[in-house]
């Protein structure tokens, strides 16, 4: 264990894993609830951000990693900005999503985790985000018909990009292969 690890010889593997991947110290949370008060999506969460942090401190790994909360976080950074203990809470949410995704526990909001996987596949093969590709995502998750009118209007307004003519495919292959092999994970 890294001697600079402030968690010490804790057997709480989740809190340590978060620290190792993000450098963030969840143990510093003292439940002031500023994060929950300022969170725009708290009304839809199954665990408020501060409740999630308490569960992390207790080592409730499954509860945290299978929660809806980590996927509903919109990365607005209001919590990170206001935390009196300087915990970058939104960054912790990123880390938790990554752990949850890799350990097959992303069950809280399946469509959202699928969206992110789909998005990255799109970048891997086209180099740039080609927005019409999201139609395939909506076909998989339902709701495509509700978006067709919108998409047609985008097309008529000249807001649908032509397929990207990206030439750096080999570069992205290097990046994605490294990441798939484990990279910094």
């Amino acid at each position: 264990m890294d001697s600079s690890n402030p968690v010490g010889k804790s057997n709480n593997s989740l809190i340590y894993e978060i620290y190792e991947k993000s450098g963030e110290k969840v143990q510093n949370c003292y439940q002031c609830q500023k994060c929950a008060a300022g969170c725009p999506v708290s009304f839809a969460m199954d665990l408020l951000p501060n409740q999630m942090f308490r569960h992390i401190q207790y080592g409730h790994r499954d509860k945290v990693l299978s929660s809806k909360t980590i996927w509903l976080c919109a990365s607005c950074y209001a919590c990170s900005t206001r935390c009196p203990n300087n915990i970058d809470i939104a960054k912790v949410m990123d880390t938790l999503r990554g752990i949850s995704h890799r350990s097959g526990m992303a069950t809280g909001e399946k469509d959202i985790s699928l969206f992110h996987r789909f998005f990255l596949k799109l970048i891997k093969y086209t180099g740039r985000t080609w927005e019409p590709g999201f139609g395939i995502y909506k076909m998989k998750t339902g709701g495509l018909s509700g978006m067709m009118g919108w998409a047609l209007k985008l097309f008529l307004k000249g807001k649908i990009a032509v397929l990207p003519t990206f030439k750096g495919g080999e570069d992205l292959k290097v990046i994605f292969e490294k990441s798939e092999k484990g990279g910094a994970q």
Binding site: K21, S22, S75, D94, T95, R97, G98, H101, S113, F115, H116, R117, F119, L120, I123, I175, F176, K178, S179, G183, A184, Q185
Partner: peptide
């Protein structure tokens, strides 16, 4: 936003 959401490595590499 997806890279930083699920892959901290891609989040910096890209």
């Amino acid at each position: 936003t997806s890279a930083h959401c699920i892959d901290e490595n891609l989040a910096v590499e890209l």
